[in-house]
């Protein structure tokens, strides 16, 4: 450390700035050792909070097959080690890092533990903005004077519409035994379909994890279809409870 500092004194200003930046990125602020993700491997000091994506925060590659049990274990371990209470007597910047990292940790865990939000997050990282795509498609349809192509099959929209109508009638008119049986059967078949979509999604994950970018389109397609069914299952559940 002292040797490096001696070298820096004679270095031109600009080089010094660059070297300091490299130091902050790759070395422990406290002991100068090569830093690990959150704590220095040599001296154990917490490292600065930095903007990072949620996969990197957990030291994970940008892949979708995630060991969720291991992730949860890592989450609890890190929450204990980063907890602001542990830093109440540390320097102001360490207190700040602890708060910052704890908040990143919670966001990262909440997003990555769930298969759907994890997939959506990865798509976002890869520059896929579903809402933006939809807006652009509408603008193109307007410019060319054509109808916008819907992202899901027309039959699925018809089905979602009809089921919503049925649900609305059930809410207004009450649910007798026959209707209840029908609603339960509908819920169960929709839940089974959601399960099959989960399988489709997992198949696309495998492709992505093996470096096949075409998997992105498949994931977008599954997520688009999925939202209608998951809304219906949620609403059916509400009427049945």
């Amino acid at each position: 450390m002292s040797e490096q500092n001696a070298g820096l004194k004679t270095a031109p200003m600009q080089l010094q700035v660059i070297q300091e930046r490299q130091l902050s990125q790759h070395q422990c602020w406290s002991c100068g050792d090569m830093r690990a993700e959150h704590f220095c491997a040599a001296c154990g000091h917490m490292q600065p909070a930095e903007p990072t994506d949620f996969f990197s925060f957990f030291g994970l590659p940008r892949k979708l097959e995630v060991d969720e049990a291991a992730l949860e274990k890592e989450f609890y371990q890190l929450s204990r080690k980063l907890h602001p209470d542990l830093y109440s007597r540390a320097s102001a910047r360490e207190q700040h890092w602890s708060l910052e990292k704890t908040s990143q940790l919670n966001d990262a865990f909440r997003t990555l533990k769930d298969p759907i939000t994890r997939t959506e997050y990865l798509l976002n990282l890869e520059g896929i903005q579903l809402e933006e795509q939809s807006k652009v498609a509408t603008e193109q349809a307007r410019a060319f004077g054509v109808e916008k192509k819907q992202t899901v099959p027309a039959e699925l929209l018809e089905e979602a519409f009809e089921l919503n109508m049925m649900l609305e009638e059930a809410k207004a008119g009450g649910v007798d035994d026959d209707l209840r049986a029908q609603l339960v059967a509908t819920r169960d078949s929709l839940t089974a379909r959601l399960g099959r979509m989960q399988d489709e999604l997992r198949a696309a994950w495998k492709k992505w994890d093996n470096g096949n970018r075409a998997a992105i389109d498949e994931m977008v397609d599954v997520l688009n279809r999925r939202s209608y069914l998951s809304n219906l299952v949620r609403d059916l559940q509400e009427v049945l409870s």
């Binding site: 916008k148 209608y228 809304n231």
Partner: peptide, 14 residues
Amino acid sequence: TGLVGAPECGDVMK
């Protein structure tokens, strides 16, 4: 008749 949907939220509009 126009039947459209918003996959972001699962809304359906006729």
